[in-house]
């Protein structure tokens, strides 16, 4: 199934949840509303015409420029993007699902933005979501066991955030 057909068909099924599509990019992607991501993924996996049986990767990209001079030049507002790279072994097609989140929930610094978990759709999502939570600070609602995976359980902050500052010490160990 070519990418245009996938997007058209998806738009028919979820007209209100689709925000946009970038089909000319290196990796064609569709942007969906954050709260609908689990439902759309469910459709993409279960509907036989899509059959996206494999979730390759969930990655978060933090768009935030801590340097004020550089921040004045960028053409985006601070936000976090979460990308889901999925493909189908049966139909041999692939697509990227893109979700745009605020950097902090309700704009209050320290409250992590929320996204429904897709670990019920693809079981591989479990560890990917833990990693995104750990390193980029996104809370996955409905995840069975959301805790840090690469950093220590009591680590402070989310290292892949652009405004992250490394703690000076960890349990008396100098980290610099």
């Amino acid at each position: 199934m070519n990418i245009q057909k996938i997007v058209d068909s998806l738009r028919q099924k979820h007209p209100l949840q689709m925000i946009g599509a970038e089909l000319d990019a290196v990796d064609p992607s569709v942007e969906v509303k954050p709260d609908s991501v689990a439902g759309i993924c469910r459709t993409l996996k279960d509907d036989p015409q899509f059959c996206f049986d494999t979730l390759h990767c969930i990655s978060a990209v933090d768009y935030c420029e801590p340097d004020e001079k550089k921040a004045a030049k960028v053409d985006w507002q601070p936000h976090i993007e979460v990308l889901y790279h999925i493909s189908s072994i049966r139909h041999r097609h692939r697509i990227v699902i893109r979700v745009r989140l605020p950097r902090w929930k309700d704009g209050i610094e320290g409250r992590l933005p929320e996204l429904p978990s897709v670990s019920g759709v693809w079981r591989t999502a479990d560890w990917h979501e833990r990693e995104v939570y750990d390193l980029s600070g996104v809370e996955f609602i409905g995840h069975p066991d959301l805790r840090r995976i690469l950093c220590a359980d009591d680590w402070l902050g989310h290292p892949l955030r652009k405004d992250y500052t490394q703690p000076h010490e960890y349990h008396g160990i100098n980290t610099r």
Partner: peptide, 9 residues
């Protein structure tokens, strides 16, 4: 590098 992203396995 151009603006955008690229993923390859």
């Amino acid at each position: 590098l151009p603006v955008g992203e690229c993923y390859l396995e």
